[in-house]
């Protein structure tokens, strides 16, 4: 068993009966109705518990939780700027580590970093890579709603193929986003850090246990969370969580873990629903023709096969 596998095997697991009552991110924030991002954020902080320091990048979660003189945070929280949450967290970690060694701090604390897909896949990628490579003991959680929602639904490198956004609008000569979604979890895994996972709020127990495992892992951890945004995706707020379930069940967003380089699929979708069933829940895809939907289906099948191959390759029989 690898060092990380050893470290995470005995975590106090969360079950539907033992979901922590602790609320690190309180009600009363200014999130939109049906926000899948803040739902995932709340779950992550619940799992981490009160002995946690949160670092946020600029973005929806930052602005909805901290309009002075209010704050939704019940744990110590810091926001500095957009592209540097990983670097700020690295400083917090290093500062606390040396103060702990010198005796200035008596207790260790979890460090959770939250950033959106823009703050992770685009402008914050360098700082993220630096923090992962240096191996700071923290968990970086990308809450991926697949576009710059805070500034008004502009495309990011994490926006999926075919989605219409305000800077990749579908039109008579465009299908919307023409590039495929950047795979940041794979980039994180390429750093050979102890723990990488993907999660979705529809599978909340899985999400919370992944946060716990990431915090128990020795060193840097990365969790990529699929975070539906009804406002930006043009879907019904009450179907937000369901949308994330469909993404998983169509294999558009597979749930998996990479523990010391060993891949495992967390939710094996034996009989996937067609991607069309997922796409049709959101008006950002409503302009797509059969031809493009077929392309997305092909790509999804290919990616799933690739993930299975990674599982086989890293789990020798």
């Amino acid at each position: 068993m690898s060092r990380t596998a050893e470290a995470i095997k005995n975590i106090e697991k969360i079950s539907p009966r033992t979901v922590p009552l602790f609320e690190g991110v309180c009600a009363g924030h200014r999130g939109c109705q049906g926000c899948g991002e803040v739902a995932a954020l709340r779950m992550a902080v619940k799992a981490a518990g009160p002995n946690t320091i949160a670092v946020s990048a600029t973005g929806c979660m930052e602005i909805i939780t901290s309009p002075y003189p209010q704050t939704a945070w019940n744990i110590p929280w810091i926001h500095v700027a957009f592209e540097n949450a990983a670097a700020v967290a690295a400083g917090v970690e290093a500062g606390r580590k040396i103060l702990y060694e010198k005796g200035g701090i008596k207790e260790k604390a979890n460090i959770l970093v939250f950033a959106g897909d823009g703050g992770t896949a685009d402008i914050g990628l360098q700082a993220l890579s630096g923090a992962l490579e240096r191996g700071h003991n923290l968990t970086y959680i990308c809450l991926d709603n697949e576009a710059y929602m805070n500034t008004g639904i502009q495309r990011s490198s994490s926006t999926p193929f075919g989605a219409t956004t305000t800077t990749s609008p579908a039109g008579s000569r465009s299908i919307g986003q023409v590039t495929w979604k950047k795979n940041v979890a794979a980039i994180a895994a390429a750093h050979n850090i102890p723990y990488v996972a993907t999660a979705a709020p529809a599978f909340h127990i899985d999400l919370m246990n992944k946060v716990r495992r990431s915090l128990a892992a020795p060193g840097a951890a990365y969790i990529h969370v699929f975070a539906p945004c009804p406002t930006g995706w043009r879907c019904a707020p009450e179907l937000s969580i369901e949308t994330s379930r469909l993404a998983v069940n169509s294999r558009i967003f597979p749930l998996y873990e990479v523990v010391d380089g060993v891949y495992s699929i967390s939710r094996d979708v034996a009989k996937p629903i067609p991607v069309a069933d997922y796409l049709k829940t959101q008006r950002r895809f409503s302009h797509l023709k059969e031809e493009q939907i077929n392309l997305i289906q092909e790509r999804t099948d290919k990616e799933w096969a690739r993930l299975q191959a990674l599982v086989r390759a890293t789990n020798p029989a």
Partner: peptide, 21 residues
């Protein structure tokens, strides 16, 4: 902390002082 840029250098300084160091 041998950071990967000066932007991160100052960001990490901010985090570190905020941690009390």
């Amino acid at each position: 902390i041998p950071v990967e840029s000066e932007h991160s250098a100052m960001s990490a300084c901010i985090g570190s002082v905020a941690a009390g160091a």
